[in-house]
Design a protein around this nucleic acid. Sequence first.
DNA 1: ATGAAAGCGCTAACAT
DNA 2: ATGTTAGCGCTTTCAT
Lengths: 346, 346
Amino acid sequence: MSKFKPTIEDVGRAAGVSRATASRVINNAPGVAAPLRARVEAAIASLGYRPDEHARALASGRTRAVDVVAISCPDAGWLGNHPYFGRVLAGMVPVLDGVNTQLRLHAIGRGQAADAIDEIAANATLGAVLADVPPDLAARFHRRCRRVVSMVPTSSVVPGMAADNIGGAYAAIEELHRLGCRRIAAVHGPILNPCATERRTGHRRAIERFGLAELSADEDFNRHGGYRATQRLLERHPDIDGIFVACDLMAAGAIQAITASGRRVPDDVSVIGFDDSIVASCTNPPLTTMGLPVEEMAAAATRLLLDGVPPSGLRMRFPVKLVRRDSTRRVAGTAPAEPPNGLMNC
Amino acid sequence: MSKFKPTIEDVGRAAGVSRATASRVINNAPGVAAPLRARVEAAIASLGYRPDEHARALASGRTRAVDVVAISCPDAGWLGNHPYFGRVLAGMVPVLDGVNTQLRLHAIGRGQAADAIDEIAANATLGAVLADVPPDLAARFHRRCRRVVSMVPTSSVVPGMAADNIGGAYAAIEELHRLGCRRIAAVHGPILNPCATERRTGHRRAIERFGLAELSADEDFNRHGGYRATQRLLERHPDIDGIFVACDLMAAGAIQAITASGRRVPDDVSVIGFDDSIVASCTNPPLTTMGLPVEEMAAAATRLLLDGVPPSGLRMRFPVKLVRRDSTRRVAGTAPAEPPNGLMNC
DNA sequence: ATGAAAGCGCTAACAT
DNA sequence: ATGTTAGCGCTTTCAT
């Protein structure tokens, strides 16, 4: 493997054409005769030519980069600790691999969020994946730059990845009901959060369908919130026998609160979470949860950006599917989950 | 805020000097008279000049980038799911912020690891942070490129961030002993893993010091491994009353296994983990653990790379400190952990 | 110590 | 359809 790095000039020479023609082929621009194009492509292959991204960026004025933006809570280690972001990155990296595109990570604090959004939008090239950006800021970004896709349903004009949150929440309640639970409570996320809203809707539909009482509480999407909400719920309605919790982190807190109240999971209270993140297999008992294909969604979002400007209002739908572990009662005749009841790989 | 982006030419003109001089000031190269330097600096400030990284890279032949490399298990969603990597990134991002340096993320599979390492080393610019790279590959990287720092102690020539794994493990056993445990077992990580080795050493020293029997098992650093090891240990030594587990993920499995055996945590068996990652607060009961300052370590590693070539064999030491939650018995007179016994922010 | 000038590898007008 | 040429913004000799 030689040290020499071929330039477009070399390619042109090898193919017996000018630099410009080589450039056209590389960027598959129109206006190159088929035979020439073939020769250039052969030259590229045989030389192992790879365009220099810096020269390209300098000459054309545009860079190839995808931005990932997340609002970080300054007080917490959010970005770092929250299982969600790692999954988003994990989904993006493989699709960016080999397409000469840099991945820029932005963690912006709540305070200067609007300015940061403007700045990122102004410098965007291929576009941005919004990992956890509230609707108003997402819309703001979209107003300044169309090359953007949100990982969650948000302002209706902003292209977004739409997991079936409604169906997932409905299915969770349905499962609890099938398991025999009749006093089913729900721990929801923040009022303003779009995902939380959808999951709330699914829950509401299900309780209407099954004729259940509405027992619910709202809190922030974190373990502590889940703990508090569950504690409150249990005090107010001691006969609760099943809880749907709108995210795994909260569900971890819910299980702790149930245990602290002297009840057992799932014997006294069944719990279903949402996400299927790493924490789902680390709770005790391991958490039954509605699995979200976060990595796939992130990959799809990235591909969208790579392919051009995503059409405004686009929604890509993703299914949410039940992952049974041990925080829900087992119905007679059902095989127990594979011991030790979690992902084998974690 | 105008749309105009000043170039080095503008700076030169504003300062009444040539482009070359401006360039020298920008790169603080020697050979510029103090007064001129001051004028150029003033011009830069007033114009809000920011050098174009692409032009710079093209002209100089070098880019400003820091690589992060992690070995990913292909079968698992490792990079995405493992709480560790998110923390590493979270530590790096803030120090890279505003220094015009790109962060390249590499997740390489076990198979083509050596090739990938060579490739990354060949293209490294500011250098690489090795997040989870085994000693032989770390050494290989270092042989090809000195601009590298490992997040864990590894081959002795490779600069590394060294958490006090030995002291941490020792302190964990010490705590268990203080709490009254006398049949203390240890669940260790893989034989070849440097961190696991150090934690094993700390454990060994402590049991010698306290005159305890050596009850231990080795498994992979994941929940499943922790589960299996604990299960085995409990079968062989039913009188175990405390377990030190070499990482939080394993500890989550350990708690599950203890519960599954009909014992209670911490009443029958106390558990101490290692890392203080997100999962530590999500187990049930919340996990007492030895906290590792991963974000700080990653930040330090990044700064090292930014500052030049880290000296071979460098070790930066970081303390590991006990975080008390509820998986360890409470001694009489000790205040209970803050309810709900976890990080308030997660 | 400072400036002039030649590229870095590529794209994009403009010619042909 | 293809080639020629002029930069993109910067670093870096080489003169002065």
